[in-house]
Computed example of a mutant assay.
Amino acid sequence: MRILHTSDWHIGRSFHGHPTLDALEGVLGELTRIVREQSVDVVIVAGDIFDSATPSADAYGVLTRVLTELRDTGAVIVATSGNHDSAARLGFQSEFARLAGIHVLTRDETLDVPVTVDDDHGPVHIYGIPYLEPALIRHRHPGEILRTQADAVRFAMRRIRADLAERGGRSVVVSHCFAQGVADAASDDLRDITSGGIDLVPMSVFDGVDYAALGHIHGRARLSDSVRYSGAPLHYSFSEAGKPRGAWLVELDATGLASVDWVDLPIPRRLSILTGTLDDLLTDDAYTDAEDDWVSAVLTDTVRPLDAMRKLQRRFPHCATMVHEPSVVADHGTRTYAQRVQGKSDIDVIDEFLAYVRNGEGASAAESEIIRDAVAEVRSAETSA
């Protein structure tokens, strides 16, 4: 049996204010082509199908078209809800979707009810663990201690193992969680992870199944041969620049996991982080290849340039972010600003202020002339008052 493991589609997500619906639909269209060419039997989406609990009509339209095209290949689809999804909205009419071979698993009451798909070697039981918020489910399971994500996923896996022991056969678990061992794969886009380790799920929780298809991390990650994250199909953060986009192609044979191979998805627009002075970024031929990329510019000018973003976007139309990080930072010592200007003239006080806020660079000759004229005008006005 061939299974394509994907996750974190985040339909409806914007990239620094720019819509991504068209780009995502194009990438998922390529995913459909892979499913057809590779004769995939099951497509898994491990949570965060939408980016919002209240998706737009356009986002629903993309999902409908993509699922229809995937189902037309003959593949069974198994999807779970993530922390960005509304389980209730995503699971609405899931019973009808199931009749069409699209299984949307969002309820904690049915954790131990698998989607069973048969091949020449017998059944494969696919169990879905939606994102489990302990505070929202503990009242339905009063006999369980459900304080953390680890508690919730352990609880789910106990039920799954008990059911699997009775059914027998091969098994796959789909879970949306933050498992230990993926710190290097995390990005600044993971907005809902609690600090201090409270929401970390030990990888050992997934022992006993042939494959664990995880979601929540936006970069691919291999925790073990049988426990993996596929990452998101699009780049949603500049921290993901240079990281591949794709899915895991999982093959099960008669005894269990046979192989796992990575399949690449196209990247509609690359991400580039460019560092240098504004003049360098605007004129250096070394940056020509990045002119059509999403660009995050890090300006190293001593003084923050005026109107820098507009100038950058003339060369890089898709420049999305800009930060000023001077390559040289003035050392003002231990004296306070008041101590440094004590006893100085008004003109010297202004020059000292400019040097303080501009990393040691005081007034230029032209600025000094303007300052002298302004101070003289103020003194003249005060004298005549």
Rank of each mutant, 00 (worst) to 15 (best):
G12W: 01
S14D: 14
T32R: 11
V45D: 04
G61H: 00
G61T: 06
V62Q: 01
T68E: 08
D72R: 14
V78Q: 11
S86G: 10
A88Q: 01
R89S: 13
R98M: 13
R98D: 15
V104R: 03
L111Q: 01
T116K: 04
D120E: 08
H121M: 11
G128K: 02
P130I: 05
Y131Q: 00
P134T: 13
H141L: 13
L146W: 04
F155I: 00
F155V: 15
A183T: 14
A185H: 05
A185I: 06
D188T: 11
L190F: 02
R191V: 04
R191Y: 12
D192E: 02
L214G: 01
V227P: 03
S237K: 04
S239D: 03
G242M: 05
R245N: 11
G246I: 00
S259C: 10
P268N: 12
T283F: 14
T288C: 02
T300F: 08
D307L: 14
M309D: 01
L312G: 06
C319I: 07
A320C: 11
T321I: 08
M322P: 07
H324P: 06
A330D: 13
A338V: 07
E352M: 12
A355Y: 12
V357L: 05
A365W: 00
E369I: 06
E377Y: 14
V378Q: 14
R379V: 11
S380E: 15
T383N: 09
